[in-house]
Every structure is written in C-alpha cells, then in structure tokens.
Design a protein around this nucleic acid. Structure first.
Length: 665
DNA sequence: GCAATGAGCGTC
DNA sequence: ACGCTCATTGCT
C-alpha cells in the first residue's frame, strides 16, 4: 500500500468527487515544458489540494514539486492523467495574483514560470507553517499632517491612495528629505484605506530605516521586512504572515517585489536606478518591471521615488503613464547644499603641504575644514575599484562611442597588441575617431583607481576621526560630530553632513557604460542629499569639469532635466530605454548559429565579449545583442522564449543565457 | 518472419 | 526514472 492514499479493492485510486483535475505548475527547468500539466486528485487528498498549494507529482517518472494552479472538472489532455502523489500542505502559498504576476514576468523576460516561482515564493518551512497564525494587525489611522505638503502634487497623490485610485507617480525627493518617513506616510495612507502597501528598497539598511518609519506611524505589528539576510524559518514566518493577510505593509529588497500583499494598493520603488534592484538569477527581472506589472494586473498605485531620476522613469513620465511629484525651484534652492565643481584645469591643489600630499584641491580642503570647524562630519565619496578601462575624448572627456551602434569604444588588448579602438558591443573597429561633442581626434584611456585612501586624508586633517564605510564593512550612520567619513557609493552612512567631497567624479562619469551619466548623478545626489542646506553652510565639492552636463545637473539640482536630456540622447542613438534590447550569452559557435538561423525581430549586434563574467564556468562566452523598437519588445521576448524552447526540446548540449533589458550592455 | 531486447524520447 | 515507441538483433 503506498502512501498515495485511498484505493479501491483492486488497488486503484479513486478520484475526488468534484473537480477531480488539478492543473499543476511543475518545477521543471526545461523551457519547452513551461506550461501547467493536469493531474487527477485522489479522493483522500480532496480537502488539501487547493489552488496555490504545494504538491508532489510524478513527472516523466520522477517525483517533482509543483504548485496547484486551479482545480477543474475536466482535462483537455487526450492521454491518461497521472495522480497527485502527495499534498505537501493545504497552505495556498501561491496566490492567484502572484501566479498571474509570475507568468507575466516570465513572458516579459523570456523565462520560465518555474524560474520565476523560485524567486517569488520562499522555500517552505513545515514547523513555521504549523505555528499559530499571527494575529492580524489593526488598520492604522490615516496620517494627518504629512511632509508631502512641500510638494505641489504630493497631497493629491496621498488623496488618490486614500481613495484607492491607481495613481502612477515619480517623486524626486528634496535634498535632506526624510524620505523613509515620506514613504511610510504613503504606505500608511494606503493601509488606512484597507489596502496593502509594498515598499522595495535597494539594501537592508534602507529596509531598516523605512521599517522604523512605518512602525512609528502605524505600530510595530503593522509592518514586516522581507530581506535576503533572514534565516529560512524567520523568512517563511514573515512571508506567511503577509500571505495570510495579517500584515499589510511590507518593506523589502528586490525579492519582496513578489510579496503576496493582500489587496495591494501601493507599490513603491526607492532609487530605481540602483543596480541592486536587478535580479541576478534567471530570468533576471528588475524590481521596476515586477512592480510595474503589479500596478497593471492588481490595480495598485505606483510610486517611483528617489533623489535622482532614471531614464526609464523619465520615459514613463513622457509617455503620460506617470505623473511627476517635484518641489518647486524655491524649495529646491532652500534645501540644497552649495555645489561647486572643480575640473582638472582649475584644480588648484591646497597650499597646505599635508593637503597637497593627499592631492586635495584647495576648494575641497577649505570646505572640509569649515565643516569640521563647525563640529560637523564630512562625507568623502570615493569610487569602487575595478572599473573597466575605456576610452574618452582627450579634450572634453566625453565617452567615446561607436558610430555604428553607439556602444563604448575600448582598446582591444587581446593577443597583446593594443591596436586601434573598437566597439565593445558590435566589435567594429574605429579608424578615424572624432569626438561627437568637441570634434577632437585625440583619445585617452580612462582608468579608475581605488581612490584616495583614508590614511592620506587623515594626514591632511591631523587629529580628526576618520571612518570608512564600504566593501565588507558598511556603517549605518555617523554621529553629528566632526569626522571624515570615507565611503564608496551606496555605502554612505546616514547623517547630517556639513560637506561632501565627491572625488574622482570625472572617472565615474566616463565609465564605458550607457548608464554612466545617469549613474554618476544618482550617486552624487544620494551623497549630496545628506549635506546640510547651503544656508546652514552645507557644501558639496565635485571633482569634475563644471562644463559637463551631468555636473551642471548636480550644481542646479535638476534630476528631471538631466533625465530628459539623457533619454533624448538615447533616443538619438537608439539605446534603451528608447529601444528594447536583449542579451544572448553563450559559446561563440552557438551564438553564430543563432545569429544565422534564428528568426529574431530587430537588429543583431555583435557578438562581443561579455561585459561582466557570470559565475558559472562560462569561460569563452560571448554576447549577442538584439535591439528592437519598444513596440516590438514583447515580440522579441516571445521569439527568444521560442528559441529557448526549441533548444531545450532538441536537447542542445550548450545552454544559452537570455536577458531582456540587461542592466549593463 | 517474428519475438526478444535495447535505445530514445516525452514527460498530464 | 517510468512507460511508451521503434529499431536492431537473433533465432526459426
């Protein structure tokens, strides 16, 4: 007698009396099997096999996990159905909303349902599931006065949340803004109207800050954080509390974008340009995509928020889908620190010999000294190590781009000989380079070092505490006392700084990445937003040429204008998000075959060397890029999913990796 | 001419 | 990792 349940005298299983067929998403990695399969529900599992529950089924002989999509009366399958072998539990882990979301995300990313479900639903923890259910938190009161009054359309957005309308907005936070509290006010407004709110932030430090802000407004029980650093039990405990509707406000990192928040009324993405929002596992969905999909399928309001603005968000604004929440110019001027740019030409090293040793420009030295004199901390932003050397105009520093496809130019150093520059996307050699901005024919390599060390800076300011934040040791916050705080972008400790020095800014700007300018401004603004207003003496020194548009955008504190110019520039040369791109990574011979035979819409570029090497032994892999008009984006995704399905059905030995809208191309 | 065996394939 | 098909083998 097997454990599979009730059988008749002859050992045959008896099907459930009503709706005896379960449609099951089996956890199988093969692309050509990316659809539900029908199974018979044995009568004794009738009560447990519910929509969304986990089951074990026999698939091609072996036992595999699956989620029940739905119970139905009959099957379309012409052959004989297998049986549900086991109901893992009656917990409906997969909600219909998340099921629909996962399917949509898989389709958009040319991936499979099983891959997306692995990202969306955490592993089960049986003991946690058996624990008594967490009591539902009380519905909070709507916040009375909020800080959104500083923004002309801010209160209107909260009003839309209160009324349950699916407003779509992007919010440019003022410098110095207590943004965790603003996001909490929006979330609690949605929760007060009986709906759920989901706030996705780049890292666990932001999670903690936003959680604390939500707890302060709505109580500790009203909010949970879902972050990757939790253990499996706690992770599942919190996730289950959300799934069971006990908690309506969820704060988390990118995986939380799939959180099964009941009655989702608001989805927020903070700092959508941050690379951490890009999922590194197949099918590589970006949190922006996941939340955007939920806005469409669940009728939730969407808020893209940050100090800076991405080109993607700008496109959404220009298309009319998203409206802007920005402060007026007077409010910006009142809140912003005074920003000074110093290019290499006007970079005068400090007279002070120790400052000279640290290679600190005089203006930067003075700004830091003034802040320290007021007993305020000074933030020093240094780039991370390891940027790929690329080429830029020797005169104006504009990154050198390919004439054919606008990819970044680099010196091909393969085989030892550094020959003429060539495109890192399409491989075309560039014989007669001429800068698009200034017409110069001279190129220079842009190599970025590790930045000045904390010790060098310490020597320039004897007796001042030096703290570092970055890499493995990230500080959450610094006290409001005189100190030098050296941090890499993204690791800046929270604090009220008297000054910020953005060192090696020109190198950050000249990175061979299509998002270099946008990313530089995002990082600068994130750091500069923590500096006191100019009226209180706050100063920001950016070590880059003041003539550069991106530097100007920082000086004028104009993230929207920069995003608009950035998007216009990408339209000009046909780069995302003005177009849509897909990356197909694999062995060169396989890519050559695909380029020749595959029926893909749009235009093929490359193959080119991989911009970032994956971890799984993709030794000699290359990358094929496919570019289409935005209107054809879905057709491209479908074509690539078909390609994967055909390869999988043919049991092709070499897997290829497909990513739509990859973060770096 | 035809069972016995095995490789290949789809996968409910 | 099962059960089906279809090809090959080996014996009459």
């Amino acid at each position: 007698m097997s454990s599979a349940g009730t059988r008749s005298r002859r050992g045959q299983r008896v099907a459930a009396a009503t709706r005896p067929v379960a449609r099951v998403w089996v956890d199988v990695a093969l692309a050509h099997l990316d659809r539900p399969f029908d199974y018979q529900v044995p009568a004794d599992l009738d009560g447990e096999v519910v929509a969304g529950c986990r089951v074990r089924v026999r698939f091609a002989g072996r036992l595999v996990d699956g989620f029940v999509d739905e119970r139905v009366a009959t099957s379309e399958h012409p052959g004989r159905l297998g049986w549900i072998e086991r109901a893992v539990s009656a917990e409906p882990a997969l909600s219909s909303q998340v099921s629909i979301l996962a399917r949509a995300v898989a389709d958009r990313c040319a991936g499979t349902m099983s891959d997306v479900l692995r990202l969306a639903v955490p592993p089960r923890h049986a003991r946690v599931e058996a624990e008594p259910a967490r009591a539902a938190s009380a519905r909070p009161d709507r916040p009375e006065a909020t800080g959104w009054q500083r923004y002309p359309r801010g209160e209107a957005f909260l009003g839309a949340l209160h009324d349950g309308r699916a407003a779509h907005a992007c919010w440019q936070a003022l410098p110095g803004e207590d943004w965790p509290t603003r996001l909490a006010e929006a979330a609690v407004t949605a929760a007060a109207s009986g709906r759920g709110a989901l706030l996705v932030v780049p890292d666990y430090r932001d999670c903690a800050r936003v959680r604390a802000a939500c707890a302060a407004l709505a109580g500790d029980d009203a909010v949970v954080t879902l972050a990757a650093d939790l253990g499996p039990a706690e992770r599942y405990r919190r996730w289950l509390a959300v799934r069971r509707g006990a908690v309506r406000i969820v704060v988390g990192t990118r995986a939380a974008a799939f959180a099964p928040v009941a009655g989702l009324g608001l989805a927020v993405l903070w700092d959508d340009g941050d690379d951490l929002h890009a999922e590194p596992r197949a099918p590589y969905p970006h949190a922006r995509l996941v939340l955007g999909q939920r806005g469409a399928s669940e009728g939730a309001a969407l808020l893209m928020a940050g100090f800076a603005r991405s080109a993607e968000t700008q496109l959404s604004v220009e298309s009319g889908w998203t409206h802007e929440i920005t402060a007026n110019r007077e409010a910006v001027r009142a809140a912003a620190p005074r920003v000074t740019a110093i290019g290499e030409d006007d970079r005068q090293l400090a007279r002070d010999p120790t400052a000279r040793a640290a290679r600190l420009p005089a203006v930067a030295f003075e700004a830091a000294r003034a802040a320290l004199g007021r007993d305020e901390p000074v933030l020093i932003q240094v780039p991370r190590r390891g940027y790929v050397p690329a080429l830029a105009c020797a005169r104006c520093r504009t990154p050198a781009r390919c004439r054919r496809c606008a990819g970044p130019l680099a010196l091909a150093s393969r085989g030892g000989a550094a020959g003429s520059p060539s495109c890192r996307w399409c491989g075309a050699a560039e014989g007669g380079y001429r800068c698009a901005a200034c017409g110069s024919r001279r190129l220079r390599a842009v190599a970025v070092g590790a930045g000045r060390t904390a010790e060098e800076l310490g020597r320039a300011f004897p007796g001042v505490t030096v703290r570092t934040s970055g890499g493995g040791a990230v500080l959450d916050a610094v006290p409001g006392r005189a100190a030098l705080v050296v941090a890499t972008p993204g690791a800046e400790p929270a604090g009220h700084y008297g000054a910020a020095l953005l060192l090696d800014a020109a190198a950050l700007l000249a990175r061979p990445d299509l998002r270099a300018a946008e990313e530089a401004l995002r990082r600068w603004m994130t750091a500069a937003a923590m500096v006191r207003p100019a009226a209180d003496g706050g100063r920001v020194i950016v070590v880059a040429d003041s003539g550069l548009a991106t530097v100007q955008a920082l000086v004028r504190w104009d993230p929207a204008g920069h995003a608009a110019a950035e998007l216009a520039a990408r339209r000009e040369v046909g780069l995302p998000p003005a177009t849509r791109m897909a990356a197909v990574d694999g062995p060169p011979a396989v890519l050559a075959g695909i380029a020749e035979t595959a029926d893909l819409p749009g235009e093929l570029l490359g193959p080119v060397p991989l911009p970032v090497r994956g971890d799984a032994g993709d030794g000699e892999w290359e990358r094929l890029l496919v570019r289409v008009d935005r209107a054809e984006g879905m057709a491209l995704a479908t074509a690539l999913a078909d390609l994967q399905a055909r390869r999988s059905a043919r049991k092709e030995p070499d897997a290829v990796r497909v990513a739509l809208d990859p973060v770096s191309v």
